[in-house]
Lab assay of single mutants.
Amino acid sequence: MQRVNMIMAESPGLITICLLGYLLSAECTVFLDHENANKILNRPKRYNSGKLEEFVQGNLERECMEEKCSFEEAREVFENTERTTEFWKQYVDGDQCESNPCLNGGSCKDDINSYECWCPFGFEGKNCELDVTCNIKNGRCEQFCKNSADNKVVCSCTEGYRLAENQKSCEPAVPFPCGRVSVSQTSKLTRAETVFPDVDYVNSTEAETILDNITQSTQSFNDFTRVVGGEDAKPGQFPWQVVLNGKVDAFCGGSIVNEKWIVTAAHCVETGVKITVVAGEHNIEETEHTEQKRNVIRIIPHHNYNAAINKYNHDIALLELDEPLVLNSYVTPICIADKEYTNIFLKFGSGYVSGWGRVFHKGRSALVLQYLRVPLVDRATCLRSTKFTIYNNMFCAGFHEGGRDSCQGDSGGPHVTEVEGTSFLTGIISWGEECAMKGKYGIYTKVSRYVNWIKEKTKLT
């Protein structure tokens, strides 16, 4: 034993070699072989497995989906700052455009905790909710729209109204504003409101030439003092309507412009014939205590009207009353817009006519005020429907199939267009061939041609 100890002390290297040989010859039971080890760690190889990531292109799944990435790591994937920024906006807080917040056709661009709407022409605001041009839906104005110097929408209202708090709607500024039905039992019968379409306001006024200088022999019209197929109006439903009495009662109609003036057809009036105007009328054979009678003290036909040349060209006249009318729910003026808007309103496509005229061709006159909704007829169809001249200051309205029309005794009465609950004068009943005849239409004086003249002559002093 002493000898062994001496050998170990003198030859430590020998001992180490012996131990190493023993270990190498022993069977290893701690580690699995290569094949079995792979069965336990069965993990798919990654895209760049075996390579240094710093030297390969980034992978979106590896960089940002398996674990949260930084902007720089995302930049490695896209290799483009702009594309990385677009991805980053949604990656950080989701897609803010998912709810489609942009209105009126706006395009949404996502941002971090926010979004941006790219608005089409005519709109602005956070969600493109603000109209900035009158060309689109009248700028959301209830009545009139004008573009300011910086191309912003400025709404306005006709006389007797003021802008509401929203700067879009119009509200009454006087007790009985024009064009409004205020009798409670008839307010439910107000005709369907007309909503502004998209309009090209630059070209809204037709490029028409008034044929002022045409000389033409007097034409022989049949029954051209021209509501057939209409309905009984309720008291106060058309408070701007008046009836004219002269040699015979209810020979023509008219509309209240203001307390002192009536507008009617020029062919209705004769110099030297006494005319009485009755406002607030409903049943011409009954006294309903809503009527107001006034005498006409002055007749002003349009300066281009000449019955000797043509009885229905420039067929418009103004009547001055001896005493002002007292405005109330049964006696209310009709609204008159400017030339541009009167023309736009007419193009809405349908209007209402009213009167006490004959209820059928050569038949009896109506006792109760009649009204009828009539569609506008395109000019080409209008011209083809008659052998008589249709001037540019006239328009056609009615039904091709016949059966409904204005008729004798309705002449001078109103053709009105309702705009968001307020009625505007767009025409004056003038003439036609018979009444409600198939293929024939009622012919009306186009008020847009005469609004400046009306307003100039009827100013209240």
Rank of each mutant, 00 (worst) to 15 (best):
C170D: 01
C268G: 01
Q90G: 11
Q185I: 12
G403R: 04
P235T: 06
N135P: 05
S255R: 01
F176K: 04
Y47S: 11
G432D: 09
S99G: 10
I7W: 13
L103T: 09
K109M: 08
R449G: 13
A9N: 11
G413F: 04
I210H: 11
Y305A: 02
D322Q: 05
E76Q: 11
D93P: 08
S187Y: 11
S217K: 07
D212G: 13
Q2V: 13
G439I: 02
D95F: 06
A266Y: 02
C396L: 02
A26W: 02
I210S: 14
M65W: 08
Y441H: 05
G105F: 04
K146S: 07
T158K: 02
G432W: 05
C128P: 00
R191K: 10
C170K: 02
G106K: 00
I262N: 00
N147G: 14
E259M: 05
D405T: 15
G403L: 10
H361T: 14
L321H: 00
N36V: 09
P324I: 03
M394P: 01
V228K: 09
S423F: 14
E10T: 08
G439S: 13
K126P: 11
E76N: 14
S114T: 12
I428T: 02
T225L: 11
K362A: 12
P172E: 05
P175R: 12
G13L: 14
I275A: 04
K274T: 10
D93Q: 10
L383C: 08
S350M: 08
D131H: 09
N258V: 01
W88H: 15
I443N: 01
S350P: 11
D249Y: 05
S430Q: 06
A337D: 01
S354R: 07
S448A: 12
A307C: 05
G94L: 10
G122D: 03
G363L: 07
Q90F: 08
R140Y: 05
L244T: 02
S107T: 14
W261I: 02
G236E: 03
I297N: 05
E323F: 10
L367P: 14
F360L: 15
N222D: 14
Y441Q: 02
E67P: 05
L24Y: 07
M437P: 07
E10W: 14
V227D: 15
C108W: 00
L425A: 00
I334W: 00
F348N: 13
F71L: 12
S411N: 12
H303R: 07
K457P: 02
I334N: 00
Y305M: 02
F196S: 14
G280P: 02
F395M: 01
P12M: 15
R373F: 04
R62T: 13
N313Q: 13
K109Y: 04
V199S: 07
T342C: 03
V359E: 06
F31A: 15
E66P: 06
Q2C: 13
S255K: 00
G432I: 04
V359F: 12
F388P: 06
A397N: 01
D110I: 05
L23H: 03
N166W: 01
C268Y: 02
Y312V: 07
T426Y: 00
L372E: 11
V243F: 10
K339P: 15
A337Q: 01
F176A: 04
A164C: 04
W431G: 10
A265C: 03
A436Y: 07
F221V: 08
F121K: 04
K146G: 06
N310G: 07
M394C: 04
I214H: 06
E116Y: 02
S156R: 08
M8D: 08
L325K: 01
A397K: 02
I40Q: 15
L41S: 12
G125V: 00
A265N: 03
V447H: 00
Y115L: 01
M6T: 14
D223H: 11
V243C: 05
K146Q: 12
V181Q: 12
P175N: 08
D198E: 10
R226L: 06
V242Q: 00
N127L: 05
N295T: 10
E456W: 06
D200R: 11
K109N: 09
Y47V: 14
E54C: 04
G357T: 15
I316A: 02
L325I: 03
S169F: 06
V56Q: 15
M65I: 12
D111V: 10
N80T: 14
K387F: 05
L14C: 08
A26R: 01
V195D: 14
F123E: 00
A337S: 03
D93K: 06
K152Y: 10
E281Q: 11
I454C: 01
H303E: 09
F348I: 08
D150T: 12
M394K: 03
C145I: 02
T84H: 07
Q90H: 13
H415Y: 09
F221N: 10
V368N: 07
H302W: 06
L369T: 15
S182W: 09
S430V: 13
S187K: 09
A317M: 03
A266Q: 02
Q57C: 04
K51H: 12
K440A: 08
I214L: 10
I454V: 06
V377N: 02
C69F: 03
V248T: 15
F388A: 04
H415S: 01
E159M: 07
T158F: 03
G254I: 00
P120F: 03
C382R: 02
A207T: 14
R358F: 07
K260D: 03
L460S: 07
V4M: 13
F348P: 02
R294S: 02
F87E: 13
V199M: 11
A366L: 09
G421Y: 04
K455Y: 04
K152T: 13
E79T: 15
Q90V: 11
E54W: 06
K260I: 04
D410R: 13
S187M: 12
E193M: 14
P239S: 03
S406M: 14
F144T: 01
E76Y: 08
K440Q: 14
V353W: 03
E270G: 09
P375H: 14
M6Y: 10
G349L: 04
